[in-house]
Computed example of a mutant assay.
Amino acid sequence: MSEANDRTPATLAVDLARGGHAGTLFLVDREGLWEHASLDLAGRRNARTLVPEAAALCERHGMTLADLDLVCVSIGPGSFTGLRVGVTFAKMLAFAAGCDVIGVPSHLSVRRIVQHVDPPGTRLRVVSDALRGDVYLTDVTVGPLGEPPIPEGPRLVSAEEIEEGDDLVRYGENPGGTSDASTVFNAALERWRQGVRDDPFALAPLYVRRSSAEEKADEQRS
C-alpha cells in the first residue's frame, strides 16, 4: 500500500478489458492509501469473482462498497465478456452506493498517455488486437497536463494498414501500452477533477464491432 493525494475520492477502479486472466482492481481509500489487486478469472469466472474480490479489497481498508465516492471502469474496446461484466458491475455499484461513475475508453488508459510522456499536441495511434486480422485504432491528440487527451475513434481497420513508428502504441504489448486498473483510475481521476461524471443509465461498453456470433448469424441470413 502507498500514499495517494489527500483530496482523492474513495475510488474503486475496474479493468476487465483484456479478458483472460488479466483482470485487475485498484482501490484508493479516504486515508489516501491505495492497493492494487489481480483477479483470478480462470474458467471465465469473472462475474462470480468480481463482487467478492471487490468487497474483500474494500474490507481490508475498513470500508464497504457502499462507502465509495467513485467507481471507474475500462469500457473498451476489448474482451466482450470482460467489458460487459465490468461495466454492469460499475453501473450497479453506482446505483446502489449512490457514487459517481466514470467510464474510460481502454485506449485512453495506456500508461504513455496517462503519465503524459509526450508533449501536448503529440499525435499517437493506439491499437489493440481485434482478432480475425483486424485491429481497433484510436488516433489520440495528447492534452496539456491536467487535461484529458482528445480521441478520434476507436474504429476497426485491417492490421495490414498499420505501419510501425514512434507514434504507434500497441495496447498491452509494451511498457507504454500497459493498461490496468491503476491507469484506468488515473485517467478517470483527471476527468473527475475536471467535473466530468457519466450517467449510470447511459454508460455502456464500447464494443466497436459486433460479436463473432452476431457476425456469423448475419452471414447465415445473407
Score class of each variant (00 low, 15 high):
164 E>F: 10
131 L>T: 14
49 T>Q: 15
47 A>D: 12
85 V>Q: 05
161 E>S: 14
140 V>K: 04
98 G>D: 05
56 A>P: 04
49 T>D: 10
124 L>E: 05
165 G>W: 03
166 D>W: 06
160 E>V: 10
145 L>N: 09
89 F>Q: 00
105 P>I: 08
62 G>A: 08
88 T>L: 14
52 P>F: 00
163 E>L: 11
55 A>E: 15
98 G>I: 06
112 R>Y: 03
102 I>F: 02
126 V>G: 07
160 E>C: 04
59 E>M: 11
168 L>Y: 05
145 L>A: 14
119 P>V: 05
146 G>T: 12
124 L>V: 09
118 D>A: 14
83 L>G: 03
139 D>C: 10
118 D>C: 14
109 S>Y: 07
46 N>Q: 13
142 V>D: 07
83 L>E: 05
90 A>R: 00
94 A>V: 04
81 T>C: 09
150 I>A: 10
135 V>G: 01
128 S>D: 12
124 L>A: 10
173 E>F: 07
129 D>S: 12
65 L>W: 03
86 G>F: 00
137 L>T: 00
78 G>P: 01
88 T>S: 15
143 G>N: 12
155 R>W: 06
164 E>G: 09
125 R>L: 12
126 V>I: 13
47 A>Q: 11
46 N>M: 14
161 E>D: 12
57 L>Y: 00
71 V>K: 03
160 E>L: 07
70 L>K: 03
147 E>W: 15
98 G>S: 12
137 L>M: 14
137 L>V: 13
164 E>P: 08
63 M>D: 06
167 D>I: 00
76 G>H: 10
157 V>D: 02
108 L>Q: 08
154 P>M: 09
140 V>E: 02
124 L>W: 04
169 V>S: 07
163 E>A: 14
98 G>P: 09
112 R>W: 07
53 E>G: 01
97 A>G: 10
131 L>V: 12
64 T>L: 01
75 I>G: 04
138 T>R: 02
65 L>H: 02
147 E>N: 09
159 A>S: 10
123 R>K: 11
167 D>S: 11
120 P>F: 14
65 L>Q: 08
77 P>L: 06
100 D>T: 08
164 E>H: 07
85 V>I: 15
